[in-house]
């Protein structure tokens, strides 16, 4: 693995093979993260491919991806491990006879309890341990790619707990002991910056801010992901999206929405980006009513001449309809 990615360029090519177009910046920082063994904190607006990057990297390196989606109220039992009570209960029930046999030669309650205590390990062994993503990543025999998605949604307490895991890659389970990672996972954290992350967490990570791609980068992405779309259309679509991003909207269209739109255009067999097509498909790009009406208004204002012609054509056809 190490031999394979010994330069920034090779990282970039590897990601490219997974259909992820990485800027020099992303490739460099990813290479560094790999070399220094540090978690990588990805920040940026929603839908610019933060999650996608970790998926692509997992594929490129052939490591399994373990994903932990954060949300408010996420706690250790959901992130790390949990005892599987039901299974423990079931085993106790089924093993009752065997237990009775083992304990049969005990002459007093105290010795029986002692003997039972000796067998205790069975019920708190890894057999009954329900591995959650963090433990999975640590316990895996091969190195994994651990994706901690939207860390900014988790509570501050969970972040503190995460620090412990990320700095040593070991967790302690009272009944079993300390489990240390056999192989250090490559860790990606993503954040939409809805709240400030703690200094301590940031300190442990390498940081990269991924912004919306520029026209040529986005065009490359569209070309790779939606090859069916004609070159001409792709260019127009990307330019339209970039214009929308410059507008004052509640939510700007993300890269993934550009791709959705491109796919929609392919499905609709659109031949050119005329006003009608754009207005009909605008809902793919914009998700707020206010944004849509604002975009429509501007669209109309911008190519007023063309809009007028469209209208007259429409009028003509309806008139013909009436005549008929």
């Amino acid at each position: 693995m190490e031999l394979q990615y010994d330069s920034v360029e090779s990282v970039k090519t590897a990601l490219g093979e997974q259909q992820y177009i990485a800027s020099d910046e992303i490739a460099t920082v990813l290479y560094l993260a790999e070399k220094l063994g540090k978690p990588l904190l990805l920040e940026g607006p929603a839908g610019v491919g933060k999650t996608e990057l970790s998926k692509a990297w997992a594929k490129a390196t052939g490591k399994p991806l373990v994903r932990l989606q954060c949300y408010e109220g996420l706690d250790e039992s959901k992130a790390l491990y949990e005892w599987e009570y039901a299974k423990q209960m079931l085993y106790t029930q089924l093993l009752r006879d065997k237990l009775a046999e083992v304990l049969s030669d005990a002459d007093s309650l105290a010795t029986a309890a002692d003997q039972l205590a000796n067998e205790e390990d069975i019920f708190f062994s890894e057999r009954f341990l329900l591995e959650r993503p963090l433990l999975q990543a640590i316990n895996h025999d091969e190195p994994t790619v651990l994706l901690i998605d939207e860390i900014d949604r988790a509570d501050a307490e969970f972040e503190a707990f995460l620090l412990e895991v990320l700095s040593d890659f070991q967790v302690s389970i009272p009944e079993i002991g300390t489990i240390t990672a056999k192989q250090r996972p490559v860790v990606f954290l993503t954040s939409n910056n809805t709240r400030e992350l703690s200094e301590a967490l940031k300190r442990r990570c390498l940081f990269i801010f991924i912004d919306y791609p520029n026209v040529s980068e986005e065009l490359d992405i569209v070309r790779i992901k939606v090859p069916e779309l004609s070159e001409q259309m792709a260019k127009q679509a990307v330019e339209a999206v970039q214009t929308l991003r410059r507008m004052d909207l509640k939510k700007h269209p993300s890269v993934s929405e550009t791709l959705d739109w491109a796919k929609a255009l392919v499905t609709l067999n659109a031949e050119s980006l005329d006003r009608e097509t754009v207005e009909n498909t605008l809902t793919v790009l914009l998700k707020y009513e206010q944004d849509i009406s604002k975009a429509r208004r501007i669209l109309r204002g911008r190519d007023g001449g063309q809009g007028g012609r469209d209208l007259s054509e429409g009028g003509g056809s309806s008139y013909r309809g009436g005549d008929w």
């Binding site: 020099d24 460099t28 560094l32 070399k35 220094l36 904190l41 910056n193 300190r203 990269i208 801010f209």
Partner: peptide, 26 residues
């Protein structure tokens, strides 16, 4: 550490190594 890996010869790489390790806020 990052600089040790990246070297200081290529300006852009050098800059990125410093930036990703030192700057944690957009």
């Amino acid at each position: 550490k990052a600089i040790r890996h990246m070297g200081v010869m290529e300006r852009e790489l050098f800059k990125l190594s410093l930036r990703s390790t030192l700057i944690k806020d957009a």
